Amino acid sequence: MQKQVQSFNVELLYVFLAVADAKSVNKASQDLLQTQPSISKKVRQLERYFGTELFIRSPRGMELTPAGRRLYPAARTQLASFNKLRERISRKPVNLGELNLGAIDSIATYAYPAFFARAFSVCKSVSISNKASDLIGPFNAGKLDIVLMDSVLSKHLIGQVSQIPLFEEPYSLVYAACNQAAGEVAACGQVTATDLRRLKLLMYPEFCPIHQSIIHVFDQFGEKRPCITQTDYSESTLVTVANSNYTTILPESLARVKVSQESSSLAQVRMESRFTRRVSLFSHNPAIAAQIKDLLQ
């Protein structure tokens, strides 16, 4: 393979390490929330840059070549040095006008409304979304300096990331007031994993933070996942729940607001303690993360 002059950026090293650790382009694409073609393209770009193959396919998956094995520890060292350099250069008082912020919609709206009301007028940019991929991709690419999102999503972040826990809250099951099966569950005072497998669940797609949190609990305890019907990001989800035997899951603060608006048709009940939402602040710069945390208080 002839060496060619190619552009290079540190993301290529992140991708290389992700594929090497997962031994799979498919698994790395899931971890990084990027498409498989995108991951494969970046691996080929890195191979062209170094002028040699870094992976070979084997029955055990993507295995490192001798060149790949030499690059692996060097890539770890280089990324650590790069992150330390970035932290050292960027260590200065936070100027909100220079920051690009991102947050899950319910966090910005219900947990820190005053902060984000100000952020919209003073920050360089503010991205609010229900879709985790709208925040994770730009954050991994360095286009967002700070993201506020569910802690369970940290597995999709690449590089050296500073994570500061912000708060926890229970999840609630939301159901139609006339839903007899859900009402019987609610009469017990809380919803268990076993209950969820017996109910009809309607939720946002798998990369929704709530969806991720729920399946994480089942996987963590080695329990069979419930059957979940996925729907697109839309307010119609609660309309469907109010007029059917479907149920859905929301953070308690959001559930309380939605149910109070439709108190004649919707009801809610808290889920067992295993199903707890944990929210964190993430940044590639620990100094900025700490200062934003202070501003949120």
Score class of each variant (00 low, 15 high):
115 F>T: 08
1 M>I: 15
207 F>H: 15
45 Q>A: 11
235 E>M: 09
203 M>Y: 02
202 L>T: 03
36 Q>K: 15
119 A>C: 12
193 A>N: 10
133 S>D: 14
126 V>T: 13
81 S>M: 11
214 I>T: 08
91 R>D: 13
202 L>V: 03
186 A>C: 10
194 T>F: 09
263 S>K: 12
54 L>I: 00
39 I>R: 01
262 E>A: 12
212 Q>W: 04
206 E>S: 13
40 S>G: 04
247 T>Y: 00
205 P>K: 10
105 D>R: 12
260 S>I: 00
92 K>Q: 15
39 I>A: 02
256 R>D: 07
25 V>E: 12
69 R>A: 14
208 C>M: 12
136 I>T: 15
65 T>D: 05
269 V>S: 06
121 S>D: 10
64 L>A: 05
41 K>A: 12
100 N>F: 04
39 I>Q: 02
156 H>R: 10
183 G>F: 04
38 S>W: 12
87 E>P: 06
172 S>P: 06
12 L>Y: 09
245 N>R: 02
296 L>F: 04
165 P>N: 14
274 R>L: 14
262 E>I: 00
237 T>A: 09
186 A>D: 09
113 P>I: 06
140 N>H: 01
63 E>H: 03
3 K>N: 10
155 K>L: 10
281 L>Y: 04
217 V>W: 13
58 S>Y: 01
190 Q>L: 14
295 L>E: 08
269 V>Y: 05
249 I>L: 02
289 A>K: 06
145 D>P: 08
280 S>I: 04
252 E>F: 03
82 F>P: 01
167 F>M: 10
